[in-house]
């Protein structure tokens, strides 16, 4: 992505997240039962949805990587999962705060969505040691893709199993989402959701751009180091892949 469009994206993200926060603090009403602390819902739930969607996106890129063999898809898969794991930490922290406020404990086992999320998060954390334990880059990419697909299929299975284990489902705090979430709450939620989604997209774009730049830099450095050792054919393509010919 070009730096100008990346800047636009970042600005738009800041704007939407800012607007979301403004709505949370000054517009959305306090919850009748839980009061002010319930407003963490506007952060916790979008983060969780975006993180899970990001894992799915990572799995889709992984499938495309295995089909095409193009390392670009592996990079996208990796960065998607990476951003979602970071979001996952935020989900667990906001979830703990919410649990403390609602039930007086930092962690409760009878909230199946949160428990499921913890298990999914634990699985995706093992993505990093797997990647770093494989030296050959091409093989690393393939194994990481197989992992991303396996873990992607795991997500719904896991939610199903955890939900089935909950014989007595705790009264859900945002069970009213389907029923009668008031209009002002809906609006706030949607703005926050859009902001968090854009935040994820921005993080992924930044990281992908940075990765690409680092790759080009090390290729150039290597070419300077031993340009006399490189064969004549194909070198130009390796030193200067599309898009970095000028400046």
């Amino acid at each position: 992505m070009k730096s100008s469009s990346l800047r636009t994206l970042a600005l738009l993200t800041a704007l939407l997240v800012g607007a979301g926060f403004a709505l949370v603090f000054f517009y959305a009403p306090n919850d009748a039962d839980q009061g002010f602390i319930q407003k963490i819902f506007y952060l916790h739930v979008p983060l969780a949805i975006v993180a899970l969607a990001g894992f799915v996106v990572g799995g889709i890129h992984a499938i495309r990587h295995l089909r095409s063999g193009d390392p670009v898809h592996d990079a996208r898969s990796y960065v998607s999962i990476h951003a979602s794991v970071i979001f996952g930490v935020a989900v667990l922290v906001t979830g703990a705060i919410w649990a403390k406020a609602s039930w007086g404990k930092w962690w409760v086992w009878d909230e199946p969505t949160l428990v499921s999320f913890l298990i999914v998060f634990l699985l995706y954390c093992t993505y990093y040691p797997l990647r770093y334990a494989i030296e050959d880059r091409e093989r690393q990419a393939r194994y990481a893709s197989v992992f991303a697909i396996t873990a992607g299929a795991f997500v719904p299975l896991n939610f199903m199993a955890v939900r089935a284990a909950q014989s007595l489902v705790h009264p859900r705090t945002f069970g009213t989402v389907d029923g009668g979430l008031p209009g002002d709450m809906w609006l706030t939620f949607l703005v926050c959701f859009a902001g968090i989604t854009l935040l994820w997209v921005t993080l992924v774009s930044f990281e992908l751009t940075a990765k690409r730049t680092r790759g080009q830099l090390s290729r150039l450095r290597r070419a300077l180091d031993d340009d006399d050792r490189l064969p004549d054919t194909g070198v130009a393509g390796r030193i200067a892949p599309s898009g970095v010919s000028g400046r």
């Binding site: 030296e135 050959d136 880059r137 290597r222 490189l230 064969p231 004549d232 054919t233 194909g234």
Partner: peptide, 15 residues
């Protein structure tokens, strides 16, 4: 034809 192989960044067969 122009066969090359690299392990990571290390080219062991060139052209």
């Amino acid at each position: 034809d122009g066969l090359s192989h690299a392990y990571g960044d290390r080219w062991v067969l060139r052209d």
